[in-house]
Structure formats: C-alpha cells, structure tokens
Design a protein around this nucleic acid. Structure first.
Lengths: 182, 182
DNA sequence: TTTCGATGTTCAATATATTGAACATTCTGA
DNA sequence: TCAGAATGTTCAATATATTGAACATCGAAA
C-alpha cells in the first residue's frame, strides 16, 4: 500500500513520548505487535490498529487524515454522497471529510415513525434546515411544531431538541449546522 | 470496535451501485472477503480494506471520517420565509433576521436563463448546497459542472464562483453559507 | 567495571483473515 | 414454465496477523 502505516504510527507514538511497551499496555496488545507494525512487517487488522490508537488516543480518521492531501472537491453527484446511518434515520453528507470545514450540510431522511429520541444533545453552534418531502415534528426547548414541505427551522444547538416523523410517508430534509465539531 | 465497518462499507458500496462481486473484481479481492467484511464476521486488515476502498474509490480517511459523527439536529422555525431575491433569481431565507447568526440558509430559485453573472462573486466564509429540482451549471475556480436533483456542491466562498440555470425549467436548491455576509 | 531497568527486535505457536469453490436465492428473458 | 445470469452466503484450505517469551542493546547508577 502506498501509505507508510509503520512510520505514521511511530511518529504519532513518539510524538506522545510513549514507548512501544507503554503504548502496548494502554492499548491491550503486546509490544511485539507494535514493533512489527512500525517495522511494516505485518499488515495490521483494522481492529488491532484501532486498539493501538485507542491507547494514544487517536481516531482512525485522524490517523489516516494525513493521507488525504487531495484537492478538495467542489461537486458531489447524488450517488456519491455517502449514506450514513441504518434503520429509520439516515443521512447523506455533502463532502466526506469534515476536517477544517466550517459547515456540515446533510440530506436527511426520516422513515415513518423515526425519532431522534428524548436525548437532547447540547453542543455549540447553530443549525437549521428545510423540509423537502413529508412531515416532521420538531421539538425545540419545549416548543413543538409539525413542519411540511417548504417549512424550515433554525436554532442554537445548545437548546434541547428532538425530531420525529409523525406522518405515514418518509420525510426528507436538507440541513446545515456549524461548526461540525465533535 | 465501536464503529460498524460492515455497515459502513455496505452503505458506501451500495451508494455507488456496485455488487459485491463487481467491487471485489475492481479491488482485486474475492467476493467472499467483501461479504464477510460486510457481515462483520472478520476483522479486516488495513491493507485489505485499503484495496477494497481503492476499488470504489475512496480513501481510508474518507471511510473513517464518519467514525465520530453524531450530529443530531432539529428545531422548529417559521414557515413564512422572507423573500430576499429579485427577478430571475429569488431567495427565501430561513429566519427573517440574520443579526448574530452563524448560518444563512436559503431556498434559492433560478428561473430558466438566470445567471449570477460572469463577475465571479468572492467573499469570506464557506458555502454549500443541494439541488432539489431542475438543473444548474455551477462554476468554481474554473471548474464547471452541471448538477441535477440530489447533486451537491461545497467550496470556500473566496474561490470565484458562478451559478447559471442552463435548463428550460426553474431550478430550486437549498444552500447554506457562513458567515451570512454579502 | 558491573548490574539493573527500559528500550526495541525476533521467532515458534496460535489465532484469525483471505481465498477458492460450492451453495442458495432472486431476477430476467425466452 | 424453464434456463441462465447475477446476486449474497458459507466453509475447508491456506496465508498471515498476533501472541508470549526470549533476545540484544542502550543508559544510568553503584
């Protein structure tokens, strides 16, 4: 493969001033595993690499982020918008990689009965959206409203909020939020 | 591991309308490999996953970009969207008053022949959008593309850009930009 | 010097990913 | 209805990752 996983891991590990053994202990693998990975003498499993990175800690996305210096795409065909989420709620994101971006734009789909649940997330930023098809019950800070095609919403993300498709047909909407930081 | 590699791969593969065998052929692995990975019955090696993604094609960074996404959004907002535009190009804005807001969300309508003009707009921030109806020619930093329903774009606003409806029917799209400076 | 602790390396044993081929199912066209 | 092609699945055989333990090297302290 074109990318040097061994050098990448070694660089990351040494950047945190961790020995192979210490990282191995935190990650729950043996030091031999780390030695072999860094020497590129094995082709690690995703699971093993994930465990190792958990010990750092670093996400797989971060670990591989360096390999994508490709010029940022400006256009996305409908079928190349990656579908995320299974079950009743799914969304397709404009642009696969969010790092460094100021905006997250999603095409969201709620199956009949779909519900984000009472879990009210609180994060910084603001978000809004426009309903394309179907009907959606939106709850924000205690206020409830059922929105249809052409209707829209906008609020500060720290306010408790919830989405629910109370109709009989799928609901599709386009949303934007900022910043897309987690 | 916490992320569902199988579901992610399946989603990506199906999004590109590829069969397991077709993807396997392009990637240079067997269809069994892809079947097993998608069923989460194996813990694929990074190399194997890389080869599979090469067949799509998609980078590992893109593949794992969804490792940490959990944007749940929703809030309710008015259904009377303020009319901002004029003539062949009109905008209906989500939220009447932008002061203090981090996001501007618009429902834009381009009549046939509508054109933002040869003079490339240029301002700070980033913007993106998704086409709802009709066809729109988008030019960004010299790149030209005609987008249809479901297609999307995203770019930094400082790059010269231009929108033009080259079709015979009105084009409608939903866009977002930040900050809402004109 | 010598010993000790910590480092990274190597290798046989074991666990597991990948293959190759067969299987069942679904769909389409005749 | 049938035949063929295309789909996803399963499993024994094989290839390879991971382990556990031993090895070598280095620097610090006595």
């Amino acid at each position: 493969m074109e990318i040097d996983i061994g050098a990448r891991l070694k660089s990351v590990r040494q950047g945190r001033k961790l020995s192979q053994r210490e990282l191995a202990r935190r990650a729950g693998v043996t030091n031999a595993t780390i030695s072999l990975i860094e020497a590129n003498q094995v082709n690690p499993s995703v699971g093993a690499l994930k465990r190792v990175l958990d010990g750092i800690p670093m996400s797989l996305a971060e670990f591989f982020a360096f390999e994508a210096p490709a010029p940022r795409k400006a256009f996305y065909k409908a079928d190349e918008l990656a579908e995320v989420g299974k079950g009743k709620i799914s969304y397709r994101q404009v642009g696969a990689d969010l790092t460094g971006r100021a905006l997250q734009i999603l095409v969201e789909r709620y199956a009949p009965g779909a519900d984000t649940g009472r879990v009210m997330l609180s994060h910084d930023g603001e978000e809004g959206g426009v309903i394309i098809r179907g009907r959606l019950e939106v709850t924000v800070a205690g206020q409830v409203r059922v929105l249809g095609p052409g209707d829209a919403y906008y609020f500060e993300s720290r306010q408790p909020h919830r989405f629910r498709n109370v109709g009989k047909e799928p609901c599709e909407l386009i949303s934007a939020c900022t910043p897309p930081s987690f």
